[in-house]
Amino acid sequence: MFSILRDLLRFNVEFLVGFVLTALIFLFAAAHFFAPYPDTAIYLLPPDMPPSAEFWLGTTSRGQDVFWQMSAAIWNTMTFGLVVMILSRIVALAVGMLSGYLGGKADQALMTINDTLIALPNIPILLLVYFVMRDQMTWPLLAVTAALLGWNYDARLIRSVTLSLRNREFTRHAVFAGMSVPQVLVRQHLPYVMPVVFFTAMNNLIWAIGLEVTLSVLGFSDVNRPTVGGMIYWANQHQAAVSGIWWWLVFPIVAVVLLFLGLFLLAISINEYIDPRSRLSRMGG
């Protein structure tokens, strides 16, 4: 694992840039544990202060420090993304592997559900869930809802890998030797599928963060909990763009763009690394 990381950092510029960007943003987000102000408190500081030595990124119209708000916001947004990613990977793995391995009726049933979810648009469903839940809508609930919408493309991908594994000799041998279906899937197929899962995980993380920002900007989440989208939502509520409080909008947007860029570079460079041919052409062995 460590040598893979070292090779990637040495040979792959995209990975290096992505890794540094993501690491910096992660450190910045982790800094909110040392914040001098509680992250949900408002009207603590003089409002609308431009960036200065005292308030590095200025203050908001709600009397919050943009620097510490953003730190907490990115942490929360990343947590949301990671939770969605992990939950949806579990569903995608279970559905994809079972569907590919069992085949027949089970495959048909699971893939019908899968394709239905692919056909349905995500945002309207999330909005519907929000309007039904209203005040009970907390971020873990939103994460579960998003996870239940975010597994379907990857389940198909994993299914296609498992379909080919099902007819390999090692699978037939394992079945003959008396391994049960869960044992075959976990011990024989999971190691094979893991790189695919790893790559889709990065994509899913980016998708989940984008989804969270979208919903929060529209106000369809717990707006009192600082998130990147939530900051933009409050900035819009206070007409920050019109009244010249540009620092309230620009910094969160720049932060989320950098986070996207970092994760995207990580995803493409890991994808290139997983494919042995492109890896060898870059690293020469």
Binding site: E169, F170, H173, A177, P191, Y192
Partner: peptide, 30 residues
């Protein structure tokens, strides 16, 4: 099976899972 009756399949060079160490195959099967 495997205890009393074992099977060397056609293309048995590929009975080993390419992404796992050989010892795991012995462990899983036997």
């Amino acid at each position: 099976r495997w205890r009393h009756l074992s099977y060397v399949m056609q293309g048995s060079m590929n009975v080993l899972n390419p992404v796992r160490r050989v010892k795991h195959a012995f462990h899983d099967f036997a």
